[in-house]
Amino acid sequence: MATNQPQGSPAPLTLIENARVFTPVPGEHSALLLAGGQIVWMGRDPGDIRLPCPVERLDAAGRWLIPGLVDPLAHIIGGGGEGGFGFRTPELYADEAIRAGVTTLVAALGTDSITRNLPQLLGKVRELQAAGLSAYMYTGSYHLPAKTLSGSVEQDLMLLPDIIGVGEIAISDHRSSMPSHQALAETVAQARVGGLLAGKQGVALFHLGDGREGLTPLRRLVEQTDLPRRQLYPTHCNRSRPLLQEAIAWGRDGGYIDFTASTLPQLLDDGELDAAEALALCLRQGVAPDRISFSSDANASLPRFDAEGRLLGLEAGRIDSIWQQAVLAMTREGLSPEQVLPVVTRNPADILGLGRKGRLAVGQDADLLLVDPDTLNITATFAMGRRLWHRPDPD
């Protein structure tokens, strides 16, 4: 599948030296050469390079060099509305993603698919592409039958390169359309066929609420149809400890698990786990590391409801939460970089079928971050070979 290309003149040749490279696992390289939006050379001794044109040289001074973050769920035109029009959340701006280290993201509608719609979402996706990011989207929304741009899920996937799946379909949630097993099976099958015909993964992203069925609708799809488990991508699996235990069993059976990085103290008090703790628990209980991802749920509403479904309060998700939770996993939870970095880079790229994303290797898209090894702060963001942002040096 073709990768989104940022607009403007070609990125210059850039040589990054003296870095500690994570590919996302620790590698033997310390230098990368970027050209034409790709990584064209990796090694240890840049003196081996002979080029007939000038090269911009950047001394990483021992900083970590890691792949750009891949966010499988962001509500880039905002979400919310569960408390009325005064509770609508704002749009995401490109510089917010860039400063947060997110170089690839996938956008979705949420509860409101009436005043926020797919044409608006597609326009915003292309706005982010024009800013230099790799942006994609899901067709559909919380509710079934799926709303589409072309008239069907299959056509959206086949005809629009920006669309890579369907979702976020709400299940086990009082805000869902209470879809039947048949409706879910038909929608996932449509995404799978459209994906096959377009050379895409065609995943179905599922919003998991705190309803009594939990992951049962997805288990039923696996048990009662021929749909592959890899087409099913449940998110918000850290919403509660009981749901996490279901997700751990699902992951041990080979399913994918996505943890929402955005959370609030009030939600943690109500039983939600943050993504860092959920990751540590999954790894300790035997879930394969390549089954797990983090998403930001950026600019979505984070509502709190009482036992009767009345809204108690609402705030918005943040795109910088992905790296914040990755840092917590390495510091507070004691996980190694090689355990954590794939969860926010390679894993979501592989799950979504974005083969040129999420890893550092010759021929891959040149999406990468520089990270201060002492503070774990992101100090520079490159997307498609362009340095889009860097943290100013202190005076």
Rank of each mutant, 00 (worst) to 15 (best):
T225F: 15
T225A: 02
T225L: 03
T225P: 04
D226N: 09
D226I: 09
L227G: 02
L227D: 04
P228D: 02
P228F: 13
R230D: 11
R230A: 13
Q231R: 13
Q231Y: 14
Q231I: 09
L232F: 10
Y233L: 15
Y233N: 01
P234Y: 13
P234R: 12
P234T: 07
P234L: 13
P234I: 12
T235Y: 15
T235D: 04
H236K: 09
H236L: 12
H236T: 03
C237Q: 03
N238C: 14
R239S: 13
S240D: 06
S240F: 08
R241A: 12
P242L: 11
P242T: 12
P242M: 14
L244V: 05
L244K: 08
L244P: 09
L244F: 08
Q245T: 14
Q245I: 07
A247H: 05
A247D: 00
I248N: 02
I248Q: 01
I248L: 09
I248C: 04
I248M: 12
A249R: 14
W250S: 02
G251F: 06
G251E: 00
G251K: 04
G251C: 05
R252T: 13
R252M: 05
R252G: 08
D253C: 05
D253G: 10
G254R: 07
G255P: 04
Y256W: 15
Y256N: 07
D258E: 15
D258T: 05
F259M: 02
F259L: 02
A261K: 01
A261R: 00
S262G: 03
S262C: 08
T263L: 12
L264A: 10
P265R: 06
P265D: 10
Q266G: 02
L267Q: 15
L267S: 10
L267E: 09
L268Y: 05
L268H: 06
D270V: 00
D270C: 13
G271S: 07
G271K: 04
G271D: 05
E272P: 00
E272R: 15
L273Y: 06
A275D: 04
A275Q: 07
A276H: 08
A276R: 03
A276C: 08
E277K: 13
A278R: 04
A278P: 09
L279V: 03
L279K: 02
L281P: 00
L281T: 15
C282K: 05
L283A: 07
R284D: 13
Q285T: 07
Q285N: 12
A288F: 01
A288C: 06
P289D: 03
P289V: 13
P289H: 05
D290W: 01
D290S: 11
D290C: 08
R291T: 01
R291A: 08
R291I: 15
I292M: 02
I292K: 00
I292C: 01
F294N: 03
S295L: 08
S295M: 10
D297T: 01
D297H: 03
A298K: 04
A298M: 05
N299W: 14
A300C: 12
A300P: 03
A300E: 02
A300V: 10
A300Y: 13
A300W: 14
A300N: 12
A300I: 13
A300F: 12
S301M: 11
S301D: 08
S301L: 12
S301Y: 03
P303F: 02
R304M: 14
R304F: 10
F305Q: 05
D306G: 10
D306H: 06
A307Y: 09
A307M: 09
G309Q: 11
G309D: 14
G309K: 11
